[in-house]
Write a protein that binds this DNA or RNA. Sequence first.
DNA 1: ATAATGACTTTCA
DNA 2: TTGAAAGCCATTA
Length: 119
Amino acid sequence: MARRKKSPARLVELAPPSRDHLRILRVILRIPKGRLMTYGQVATAAGLPRRARLVGQLLANSPLAEGVPWHRVVNAAGRISERDGEGPSRQRRLLAAEDVLPDRKGRFDLSRYGRSPRE
DNA sequence: ATAATGACTTTCA
DNA sequence: TTGAAAGCCATTA
């Protein structure tokens, strides 16, 4: 096997996932279709209270692999937090495909869509 | 070790 | 209800 040197921070996508990241991913994977969770809820459900930003950082750096319903994660205001450069259109479209629709101002009703990962 | 930054959240005016 | 400010935490520079 090829010897592996220390990978630069640039190759985040190839870096071994940390324990915390796995816990977060596991929670996101259990968000039912048509439902939403906030960054904070995901963090807490993953056993990492006050680490909402960690959830955001993970998703921001991840290649957003298929099968990972990252689009079901929104901010506490029920709005889409957009990635550097990209608009909310992509996430909005994916949600619309699950009948999760925003109000006139682009806000999602968390009391309606927001639920814990396990029903 | 200090400072800046970011898919965040809560508080307050 | 909205936006600014401060709080919070991991990562980078």
